[in-house]
Design a protein around this nucleic acid. Structure first.
Length: 168
DNA sequence: CCTATGATTGTTCCG
DNA sequence: CGGAACAATCATAGG
C-alpha cells in the first residue's frame, strides 16, 4: 500500500470523509519500526503500565459491539473507528459524560500504577550514576512491591460519588 | 506462520 | 509548552 501520491496514507480517509480535523499535529506516525515483541530487553521502560483508555475508547468498546451487531459485514477496524469518531463528535458532552467518568476511573488506577512505576525507575536511577558498574548485566528485577495494590479499593461502588452535572 | 498495520480520538509523559 | 507515541480492536495482507 502507501502507493501513489498518498502523502499521508492515514489521511487517505479524506476521500471518503472530508477529513475530520486538520489537526496541526498531523502525522503522529514516527515509529519506523514497531517493537511489538516484548521479548528482548529493550531499553524501554521495564514495565510501564498501559495507558488507560480515554473516554473515546471507553465509548468505543461499547460502540464497537453495537456497530458490529448492526454491521456484521464490516470487518475493518478503521470502519468502526471512523464511524465512532463521527458519532463521538455528534454526541453531546452530556452523553460523553458517563464515558469520561469511567475514563477518570482508569486514570485514577493508572496513577497507582505510575506510583509503582516511578519507584521502579528510582531504583534504576541509582544505577544510572554507576552505569559503568553492571550495565550488561541487567538481570535483577527485584520488584515485588506492586504485589499488594488492590487493598486500596475494597468494594467501593460509585454511590456517594459526586455527580456533578454541568451542562452547557 | 506470524506480525504489523490500519483508523478513531484522547490521554498521558518526557524533554 | 509541545509534541510524540501509544491505548483497543480484528481482519487482512505481506514477508
Amino acid at each position: 500500500m502507501k502507493t501513489a501520491k498518498g502523502k499521508d496514507k492515514a489521511r487517505n480517509t479524506n476521500e471518503a470523509l472530508k477529513l475530520v480535523d486538520d489537526r496541526k499535529v498531523g502525522k503522529r506516525k514516527a515509529p519506523a519500526e514497531k517493537a511489538s515483541k516484548r521479548e528482548k530487553k529493550a531499553k524501554k521502560d521495564p514495565n510501564k503500565p498501559k495507558r488507560p483508555p480515554s473516554a473515546f475508547f471507553v465509548f468505543l468498546e461499547d460502540f464497537r459491539t453495537t456497530f458490529k451487531k448492526e454491521n456484521p459485514n464490516v470487518k475493518a477496524v478503521s470502519a468502526v473507528g471512523k464511524a465512532a469518531g463521527q458519532k463521538w463528535k455528534s454526541m453531546s458532552q452530556a452523553e460523553k459524560a458517563p464515558y469520561e467518568e469511567k475514563a477518570a476511573k482508569r486514570k485514577a488506577e493508572y496513577e497507582k500504577l505510575m506510583d509503582a512505576y516511578n519507584k521502579n525507575l528510582e531504583e534504576e536511577g541509582s544505577d544510572e550514576s554507576e552505569k559503568s558498574r553492571s550495565e550488561v548485566n541487567d538481570e535483577d528485577e527485584a520488584s515485588e512491591e506492586e504485589a499488594q495494590l488492590e487493598k486500596g479499593k475494597a468494594g467501593d461502588e460509585e454511590e456517594d460519588d459526586d455527580a456533578d452535572e454541568e451542562e452547557d
